[in-house]
Write a protein that binds this DNA or RNA. Structure first.
Lengths: 213, 213
DNA sequence: GTCTATATAGCGATAGAC
DNA sequence: GTCTATCGCTATATAGAC
């Protein structure tokens, strides 16, 4: 089962998941067709049905890989041991890096939310909600220690997600308004530091002076 | 032509546009079917084809109504005559009100961007881009007059749009995380003032003291 | 496990009676 | 202007040879 040797099944499954992610990102679950998905994987449609049963089964498998990726950034940066200046800046930069390197993952998640989250309602209401409760406690702790202003921690998180993910989800609008065919590294760095500054100054985060109290 | 008497055509067109907006918001352009759209309007499919020709024709008509709505808020609030404390707060509150009252419009626009803006590329690159250039000049003027910090004006606008529209587009996530079936007025007011504070403090906007210099 | 060929259902769009 | 019936096509899914 869990040997280091990649079984044919495992290899095929991983190949199909990676190859079909851009198709779901481009067309959404409803818009993507099995013919497109199969063509992207370089396989006949029947093979996708063999491994995932239905189009929805394939989509759920793609989604689950994305959700696992999603929760990790916050757990690394929004922790009591850090000063909020470091924690928020690190978190925003990590999210922005994800928006740059895995925009398709962000778009699939955005599409799922836009449709009313028909496939991940339980994840939102239980797993994500629990994580947010933990993060909110850390942020309130920072405020209690006088390291930043009192800001509604949950709405702050919603806004950090919104700002960072807009650079993946609505990338086409950003490129059109900036008049650029693609967003280069320098422009993306400007965007990242604009968001970092908005969050740090917007929350009245005191400057980090070495160790925490 | 332009009389005050509503022609049958005009009445039907407006009815269909209003009735189908929620369907496009829920399923997107590709996901919505003519059968669903017709059912929402309480008409046979053939009637929709009679007035709009194709599904795409209907969708474009819905989109155009939304775009017209979209550009007005900024032109009212982000103007040189206002102090940025008043301008940004008013703009954010206006956008938040739109997210609360016309969430379907925001979602249709979000879906269009997520798909790569196949129907409104020209609007983004020309009309919206020109408007943004004007708004950026106003914001830079505020900075030059010492009323706020130097913030990249275009990225600031991207982030204001992201924060305000997330309350329409990703409303399902917000409700799930907050554990509420619907967002009540009090919660929405908290959200609004959280965004207002993030923008004003984040941009280092000086307090408004009566008249402008 | 792989792939061709096909079954069945639903799609956008239209013809033509009213 | 309205509506029923239906065309032609493409969708998801599967049967069955290899």
């Amino acid at each position: 089962m869990d040997t280091a040797v990649a079984s044919i099944r495992q290899t095929s499954v991983e190949h199909i998941l990676a190859a079909t992610e851009p198709v779901f990102a481009k067309h959404g679950f409803e818009g993507a067709t099995m013919a497109q998905l199969a063509a992207a994987a370089g396989l006949p449609k029947a093979n996708l049905h063999y491994y995932f049963g239905t189009k929805e089964g394939l989509y759920r498998a793609v989604l689950e890989g994305i959700l696992a990726l999603w929760l990790d950034d916050a757990a690394e940066w929004i922790v009591p041991e850090r000063h909020p200046a470091e924690g928020f800046a690190g978190y925003v930069r990590a999210k922005m890096t994800h928006s740059r390197e895995r925009p398709d993952a962000s778009r699939i998640f955005a599409d799922e939310l836009l449709r009313g989250a028909p496939h991940i309602m339980m994840y939102l209401g239980i797993e994500l909600r629990n994580r947010v409760t933990e993060l909110a406690a850390v942020i309130e702790g920072w405020t209690a220690r006088g390291l930043m202003d009192a800001v509604h921690p949950v709405h702050l998180l919603f806004n950090i997600w919104a700002m960072t993910q807009t650079y993946a989800d609505f990338d086409v609008q950003i490129r059109a308004v900036l008049g650029k065919v693609s967003i280069d590294d320098a422009e993306f760095a400007v965007a990242t530091e604009t968001v970092v500054a908005l969050v740090l100054k917007g929350c009245g985060v005191r400057p980090s002076e070495g160790r925490l109290p």
